[in-house]
Design a protein around this nucleic acid. Structure first.
Lengths: 125, 125
DNA sequence: CTGCTTGTACTATAACATTAGTACAGTACG
DNA sequence: CGTACTGTACTAATGTTATAGTACAAGCAG
């Protein structure tokens, strides 16, 4: 059972799915700071995708300060996550995130109050 | 405020976002059977998207039996109710939505409690 | 050093997504 | 009838995504 999950049939590009998957694994603690990720070639085999695609995701995540790569050694989770983000930048991102979230949920017919209730539920896990 | 929501910056193709958006609107009853959708040209203008892209989505949804198009008249929601409109399906979608939201926000260093606070702010607008 | 692993870079190719523009076909209405 | 609307069908051009294959660069162990 691979740690990450991508679906080649999804209209969302593989690189975007993998990027999100890795970020989520770190955010949820499945991947702790310092932990080593699979090698680009190994993960490519596991997910049945091209090694270039995996490599580009790793490279992008390093540019974003999420991962740290050491040639000949491997790719690891950075100790200090998101060191680049100022408070203003983070709040702008959060605002966009909320906009998207509320909009999508509204399309499913859920009100803001229901979202808050559901999030409170999540809080207790 | 347009009925559908697409984001040209998202890695997910526009046609896929629009497809999902229309299906959701039907599933939640925002678009009832028999209701007319915007014309391909009008919706293209509203969403700042090419008319071909809209037209292809309509055509695909007709092939799937979701919509019915009449040349020179317009595009309408089919009378046959969608089987995806169940409560269980919507809640599964919401759960996935929340997972993404919380994960992304966690990467920005925001806790669940902060998210709830921010959403409450949104509620007062 | 050699040999093996790692990430990285590059080519080339194919498929897909999106756009602009134009044109055609069916329907409604005066 | 003519006109204005509808969806549909093309072309051409551009950018993105994913693939295979090859090669190079950096670290580590023997």
């Amino acid at each position: 059972m691979p740690m990450f999950n991508v679906d080649s049939r999804s209209p969302t590009p593989i690189y975007a799915q993998l990027d999100r998957s890795i970020r989520a694994a770190i955010a949820t603690g499945q991947l702790e700071p310092g932990a080593q990720l699979p090698t680009v070639r190994q993960l490519a085999v596991d997910l049945s995708v091209n090694a270039n695609t995996v490599g580009r995701v790793y490279a992008q995540l390093e540019r974003d300060g999420i991962l740290e790569t050491r040639r000949g050694v491997g790719t690891f989770v950075r100790e200090s996550p998101s060191p680049h983000a100022t408070l203003a930048h983070r709040e702008r991102e959060l605002r966009a995130l909320i906009q998207h979230f509320v909009g999508d949920a509204a399309l499913l017919g859920f009100t803001l109050a229901e979202l808050i209730t559901q999030l409170r539920n999540e809080e207790k896990k």
